[in-house]
Computed example of a mutant assay.
Amino acid sequence: MTQAVSSPSPVSPSPAAAATALRSPDASAPASRDGTVQRALMGLQRLRWQAGSVLMPAATARRLERIWFSPPRGAATSAALHALDGARADWALVTGHGPSRRVRVYRWGSAGPVVLLAHGWGGHAGQWHAVIDGLLAAGMRVVAFDALSHGASDAGARGAAQTSVLEMSRSLLAAAWHAGPVHAVVAHSLGGAATALALREGLPASAAVLLGAPADMRAACAALAWQLGVAPAVLGRMQRHSERWLGMPWSAFNVPDLGRARAVPPTLVIHDRDDKEVRWEDGAAIAGAWPGARLETTTGLGHRRILRDPAVIQRIAEFIRPPSAPREKPVPAGLAVT
């Protein structure tokens, strides 16, 4: 694993949600090996958004809002299902924001400090299967959950098809209070932003690890709007409308600023140079802004394979392991991140 000197950096112009938006039912095109055809289809899509921005700004803003707040759906792998089958499963409740909603919580291990795992946008608890094994081997108890409108949990306030980083954060807090004292939080992708919000709300944790986390939701949404061809005025309309039901401004979701606003635990930021969904600069911006945070850079793992890399998992365990916890066996030679 190669360490990189971290410093504040411009927030990524590449939104983690862009791929999801471009695959939405009324904006997608079949995959084609012909690059010319693909570019033509994307250009046609962009023209549709541009025309909608001029002719139907309100409807276009609603469509952009629907896309932005709709997480993707994917089938769980056999390894993920196997991990969930071996867990003790129960429910935590998200309360205080309308009717109570259930969050599915999974637990592994019976002794050691509790590590809470927070999945990303469109993810689920089973995606952590490799990390779960590594943390159990390191002498820790592991807790994971499905955020509202994800996995086996209840739908969020806007229905099963939509949710937000704010609901993901509330799901995280519900799982944390339900599972008891949490020693550390390990988060992937948008789960990192949800973790930052939870820390602002007082989540007690002695350590945090953020993997491929985005830095600024407002900048990411603006980048998506530019990609699609949405006019700035339409983007502003969409953001103002969503702020009303979110109950807070989009500026509240800036992860570097959250670390400046209040004390945060010792944090390890791991980001891959080849991450095509959340640029490495986002991780550098977070690590540069959070006091005492450390940035470590990997290459060749992208946005998702980083969750299954043995050297990354060992580094996570080393960072969050209390001095009294037993040490796990070293990673075999040849598995180190380069």
Rank of each mutant, 00 (worst) to 15 (best):
residue 328 E to P: 15
residue 161 A to D: 14
residue 317 A to S: 06
residue 10 P to H: 04
residue 234 V to S: 08
residue 26 D to R: 15
residue 279 R to T: 06
residue 257 D to F: 10
residue 217 M to D: 01
residue 253 F to T: 12
residue 29 A to F: 11
residue 142 V to R: 12
residue 253 F to S: 05
residue 159 G to S: 03
residue 207 A to G: 02
residue 30 P to W: 01
residue 232 P to A: 02
residue 141 R to S: 15
residue 284 A to Q: 08
residue 43 G to D: 08
residue 159 G to N: 07
residue 276 K to V: 07
residue 226 W to Q: 12
residue 305 R to Q: 10
residue 332 P to M: 13
residue 317 A to F: 10
residue 287 A to T: 09
residue 199 L to Q: 08
residue 24 S to C: 10
residue 267 T to Y: 12
residue 217 M to F: 11
residue 75 A to N: 10
residue 259 G to L: 07
residue 167 E to I: 14
residue 157 A to E: 07
residue 270 I to W: 05
residue 296 E to F: 05
residue 18 A to F: 07
residue 163 T to E: 06
residue 127 Q to A: 10
residue 315 R to I: 08
residue 26 D to L: 07
residue 236 G to N: 08
residue 324 S to F: 12
residue 99 P to H: 13
residue 192 G to W: 04
residue 50 Q to I: 05
residue 188 H to D: 05
residue 117 L to E: 00
residue 126 G to R: 14
residue 119 H to C: 13
residue 14 S to N: 12
residue 332 P to V: 08
residue 146 D to M: 11
residue 99 P to S: 04
residue 270 I to D: 04
residue 109 G to C: 15
residue 229 G to V: 01
residue 101 R to W: 02
residue 143 V to Q: 13
residue 263 A to G: 06
residue 28 S to A: 11
residue 308 R to N: 07
residue 138 A to C: 14
residue 315 R to K: 15
residue 210 L to H: 00
residue 327 R to E: 02
residue 233 A to K: 15
residue 151 G to K: 08
residue 158 R to C: 04
residue 72 P to W: 00
residue 72 P to V: 02
residue 101 R to M: 03
residue 179 A to W: 07
residue 96 G to L: 14
residue 58 A to I: 02
residue 288 G to I: 07
residue 144 A to E: 01
residue 288 G to W: 12
residue 81 L to I: 06
residue 159 G to R: 09
residue 120 G to W: 12
residue 58 A to H: 04
residue 129 H to V: 09
residue 318 E to R: 15
residue 80 A to F: 08
residue 83 A to D: 03
residue 280 W to S: 00
residue 72 P to R: 03
residue 288 G to T: 05
residue 252 A to S: 09
residue 94 V to F: 09
residue 143 V to D: 11
residue 6 S to I: 05
residue 173 L to Y: 11
residue 145 F to A: 05
residue 14 S to H: 13
residue 7 S to P: 07
residue 126 G to S: 14
residue 135 L to I: 03
residue 196 A to E: 01
residue 127 Q to N: 11
residue 286 I to Q: 00
residue 334 G to S: 03
residue 121 W to G: 01
residue 334 G to E: 05
residue 237 R to K: 14
residue 318 E to F: 05
residue 9 S to M: 09
residue 160 A to Q: 14
residue 8 P to Q: 01
residue 257 D to C: 11
residue 140 M to C: 11
residue 165 V to S: 06
residue 80 A to C: 13
residue 29 A to R: 15
residue 201 E to F: 09
residue 263 A to P: 08
residue 175 A to C: 01
residue 277 E to G: 03
residue 56 M to D: 02
residue 73 R to H: 08
residue 89 A to E: 12
residue 8 P to Y: 03
residue 37 V to F: 10
residue 138 A to I: 05
residue 261 A to F: 03
residue 323 P to S: 04
residue 41 L to V: 11
residue 41 L to T: 08
residue 144 A to C: 15
residue 60 T to G: 09
residue 134 G to N: 00
residue 176 A to T: 04
residue 286 I to T: 08
residue 75 A to S: 14
residue 117 L to G: 02
residue 330 P to E: 04
residue 182 V to Y: 07
